[in-house]
């Protein structure tokens, strides 16, 4: 067997790993705030209103935060989906899957940037 160090994989795994930390730490807070706390009356619904939240998007720090939150988690999902698909039987597509999955994350990145910086 001729082994060769894989030069690009640390980048994808690094994005996956950072995305995993962000997804595990921050996404539950957003689910709680937007999905549970408002409906239970724990926080004022007005604070989470569409107008107020879109208003917050004018702040570049909020945009930056959302970029980190959304983009890294896309790469986390892409990496996980790539390996899950290979392991549930699409092993013959192992060479194509990185392009499909990370390509999807790249498209997602462009969409996030477009929404945050062009639409708002």
């Amino acid at each position: 067997m001729n082994y060769k160090e894989h030069k690009s994989e640390p980048f994808w795994w690094g994005m996956f790993s950072q995305g995993g930390v962000i997804a595990a730490l921050l996404i539950p807070i957003h689910i709680f705030l937007g999905g549970i706390a408002v409906h239970l009356g724990l926080i004022d619904a007005e604070l989470m209103s569409h107008e107020r939240l879109t208003g917050l998007l004018q702040n570049p720090l909020v945009k930056l935060y959302l970029c980190v939150l959304l983009i890294f988690t896309l790469y986390h999902a892409a990496h996980r989906i790539r390996f899950t698909l290979a392991e549930i039987g699409l092993h013959s597509l192992a060479k194509v899957l990185p392009f499909l999955c990370y390509g999807g994350a790249l498209v997602g990145t462009a969409v996030v940037l477009y929404i945050l910086w062009v639409l708002f």
Binding site: M1, Y3, K4, E5, H6, E9, P10, W13, F83, E87
Partner: peptide, 15 residues
């Protein structure tokens, strides 16, 4: 060892 351990067949295959 790095070319074996950090190869596609090495650590990166582990999920």
């Amino acid at each position: 060892r790095q070319h074996v351990i950090a190869s596609k067949e090495g650590i990166w295959e582990c999920t």
